[in-house]
Design a protein around this nucleic acid. Structure first.
Lengths: 344, 344
DNA sequence: GTCAGGTACCGAAGCGCTTTGGAAATGCCC
DNA sequence: GGGCATTTCCAAAGCGCTTCGGTACCTGAC
């Protein structure tokens, strides 16, 4: 069923049917109603490709998700971000296309995406500190919004990011207030912007109180359960083991908890743990009383916001680049407590 | 840069350029080379919409992922499945489009997807036992492959599924061999086909040894950490607590482990745990020695296989429906052991 | 010299839609 | 009844590509 057939069926021209369906004013309300009903009955939906060709707009947003080639790891945060974004796309009648890509040919990928013309804009995931994609996309002239930012880049572009520095500064301050001094940072890969900023927040807080930052208490790696476990286990084996740990994801925190138990210690009493919590739907940090004390910021919400921002940019290309900083909450759970007596 | 411009630039007709780029034989090798080089240099890529319109093929696959409306939960398995599928799509030059949808309007969604014509086929996720989408899609005539199956449906259709029944039967048998009799099943939602089949496997194994299935030891719910924790905590508080537990996901298993520790018990000694392990990239079950004894089947691999199957069906619509059953490995980790003396 | 068969190219139609630039019909005023 | 908006509809061009049905030229066989 296509427009031509529908028009023939209604004894109208394609023009009129098209206008009726697209809400143009110059068509009789009665005719419009008739058209709408027929379309519904014959379940006609305009061919997206033809429509796109005629209008020049694809009515689709591309998400390019980098797969870390080293570990072939898919960021678990991605699903919830997509779900949030999707909510906005559905409202606006946009589709979503995905390309999973290695870090290698990503630029070529963007160029092709634009040339092929099947997206009107894209969301950039997982920016590094000096992300080359951002200047490239600017020059390409394809609207985009970054989830995160690239610290070293001094260009105007739109992004949605959490205040990583501030969040980790607060978390560290909270631990310092509890008397902790030997605080570990079990961080994500630090060429990733979010991880870098978190380290900065951590260090600033430590420096602010004159607490020493011990390199033995700091690691950076891909945020898996076993990474959390191994990092924590190694540190707990030190003669002057840390009394508190801050980490970048609940999954790593779970590994840390395991290491603490394996060392015969108790989380929250012997060792305090704070994690960042992306509020993932399948990994809620406890239903009412949080398991982990955490800096929390919903990545679902970030997805929603990024999508809405991108759609706004597409609707009005003259809109200036727009930054959007989300503050994380610091929520207190059972994984933190005052520094143990014997470690004071 | 479009075909017309490229052709003009080369002093050739659009026809010849098109044929050169698409590998048709009736074009001089030298000309083809010249065309290819110019296309590369001017980074020309054919407009996908126009191409689709002309060929009638969208060169894209749709993934419709249901968001459980109750809990707004995104299945964590999804990311890795997509990554696997994507590998095949990239090889074949296909794109991937995503629609996140509530369970409500899903049928309408599929119809629209077909009418809009921007996919050549779709992958169906998360089938229930009597999934209405399957007969609907058959009738719609849009090629599709199901990840999982619908037990109650007696129709030919293509699917990729793991042998859930057998896997859980083996897992249960393994526990029975270790002397366990009070075995709990902390399962997924049992209208979902995979969860139903796992229960069947569990029950068959129990019945095969004359072991009683105690309803107090069985739950079904969405596989979150806290669900695992609460279910296990409740069961461990029983006077005759189970000595072993089987669960459907590593995430729930982590909650179970937490409950075991919270009860002052030790996993693998006081309580054995077996989980199903989808081999998710961000949740590896221990790098070398697995943490959990598990039935393992890579969902990444399932994604790859499902995608390849769908592409084959699109290439040759006459191909008969094809089922594909993947066997899970039973891998032994540290979470299981013989039934404790006092519980014999 | 002619003609079949190849090779290398091209013109134009058509995919299903939107949209421009009208045209016909209607209503209203004088 | 003529003039003039206004309303309601339409024909046809065009979006960028593929592909059908050629044409022009060359080669070699008879």
């Amino acid at each position: 069923m296509n427009l031509k057939q529908l028009a023939a069926h209604l004894n109208l021209s394609q023009t009129t049917v098209s206008r009726a369906l697209n809400g143009y004013p110059e068509v009789n309300e009665q005719t419009r109603k008739r058209v709408m009903e027929a379309a519904q009955a014959l379940n006609y939906a305009p061919n997206a490709r033809a429509k796109g060709l005629a209008t020049g707009r694809a009515m689709a947003i591309g998400h390019v998700i980098p797969m870390s080639t080293q570990h072939q790891m898919m960021n678990p945060v991605f699903g919830d971000f997509i779900a949030g974004a999707s909510e906005e796309y559905v409202k606006a009648g946009y589709d979503m296309t995905l390309s999973v890509t290695g870090d290698r040919d990503e630029k070529e990928n963007y160029r092709r995406l634009k040339a092929k013309g099947n997206v009107d804009g894209i969301i950039v995931h997982g920016p590094s500190m000096t992300d080359a994609r951002i200047p490239f996309l600017r020059q390409l002239g394809l609207p985009f919004v970054v989830h995160g930012r690239a610290t070293e880049l001094d260009l105007p572009y739109s992004w949605v990011d959490m205040n990583n520095t501030h969040a980790f500064q607060r978390a560290t301050d909270f631990l310092l207030d509890l008397g902790h001094r030997r605080i570990a940072l079990i961080n994500g890969l630090e060429f990733m912007d979010f991880a870098y900023r978190r380290r900065v927040g951590f260090e600033q807080a430590m420096a602010g109180r004159g607490a020493a930052v011990d390199p033995r208490y700091m690691t950076a790696g891909e945020m898996t359960e076993s990474y959390g476990f191994e990092s924590a286990a190694r540190m707990l084996a030190l003669p002057d083991r840390p009394t508190a740990m801050i980490t970048s994801s609940v999954i790593a925190a779970i590994g840390i908890r395991r290491a603490i138990h394996a060392a015969g210690l108790e989380m929250g009493r012997d060792v305090s743990v704070i994690t960042h919590d992306d509020d993932l739907s399948f990994l809620r940090n406890g239903p009412d009383v949080p398991i982990f004390t955490a800096t929390r910021s919903s990545v679902y919400e970030a997805g929603r916001i990024a999508a809405a921002m991108l759609l706004a940019h597409i609707a009005d290309p003259a809109l200036p680049a727009q930054p959007r900083l989300l503050e994380a909450q610091l929520i207190i759970g059972g994984s933190t407590g005052p520094v143990p007596q014997d470690a004071r």
